[in-house]
Design a protein around this nucleic acid. Sequence first.
DNA 1: ATCAGCATGTAATTAGTTACATGATTCC
DNA 2: GGAATCATGTAACTAATTACATGCTGAT
Lengths: 179, 179
Amino acid sequence: MSLPHAILTALLEKPSSGLELTRRFDRSIGYFWSATHQQIYRELGKLEAEGHIRALPSEAPARGQKKSYEVLPEGRAELARWTAGPQDPRPHRDATLLRLRAAAVVGTAGLATDLTRHLALHQRQLAEYQEIEARDFPPGDDSTQARLHHLVLRAGIELETFWTDWLARALAELPAEEP
Amino acid sequence: MSLPHAILTALLEKPSSGLELTRRFDRSIGYFWSATHQQIYRELGKLEAEGHIRALPSEAPARGQKKSYEVLPEGRAELARWTAGPQDPRPHRDATLLRLRAAAVVGTAGLATDLTRHLALHQRQLAEYQEIEARDFPPGDDSTQARLHHLVLRAGIELETFWTDWLARALAELPAEEP
DNA sequence: ATCAGCATGTAATTAGTTACATGATTCC
DNA sequence: GGAATCATGTAACTAATTACATGCTGAT
């Protein structure tokens, strides 16, 4: 539902081609709104047809050729409208919590292995966020833009901190398993 | 992707009809795996066709008639397999974080109103979780099942606590708006 | 007898995922 | 000229959402 707005945001930050966008959706933007290259190309086509973005004229539009896009005033207006307007929270779905609830009825056998793996993934993600914070947000940041970006990163850091703590607690509470 | 497993879990906890399931997906189960009645009826049909659940014979199978389901051994085995097996974390998508990032490029005008509304929603949800904790998990719980359920609830409480804190901080950092 | 609410469904649309296809460029 | 990689796309499928349809039950 908000993929077009994620793309508009990314393109306003920096005009890019489809593949460049895909790479950015694997890092920064993708930390809170992931998308595959197939989704991105499809959505770029729609946004262009609607007059929200346009291809930079410099490049040739052939198949294997790079094609960069920039946001038009209509696109910026649409993004501003979306940002300011009311939005209902989307329903959440968390497979890990569901799994624990399932384990309460069918047993916890085999669960610890995969939860341990998840714990490691969250620890790695947390470390990555902390590196970004140390590198990009030294104490004493001031611009509104920097403070907003820092807030978003803090959410990532605190959520990953929560999950690492919680998974460690969950693992500690699981009944020991036979080897 | 895990809707069938959510339904199997719910039915193992207590055999139910479609509408009863729908109600439970509006409360307990739905706190971490939401689903609408349309999804539920469709999935019940599939699970029955696959031999994972069956309709309790007592009730008549007509259209406006209640029809309750119970889990068969095959369904329990499938749920145990899913619970124990490896699962890759799904990509996250958080519209609020995307919105803050968008606001960093198009401006924060109008944003505070809706974030304030979201803050209130998270506060209400947190209060509800805390009531459930006080009611259902008095100090000194012991069974594995109770501890697993409590862990899941704790995740809800701590996540809502995070969001209320974070939204309050975000609102404090937004530039004041002209009335 | 009709209306409100319970209960079960169907249909159409949109969003997201997975698998595959194709051209261009560069390096060997 | 062949392989590897960059870059852009199509097609098919699965999951989720939105809107609508229909029968049953009990109250007035």
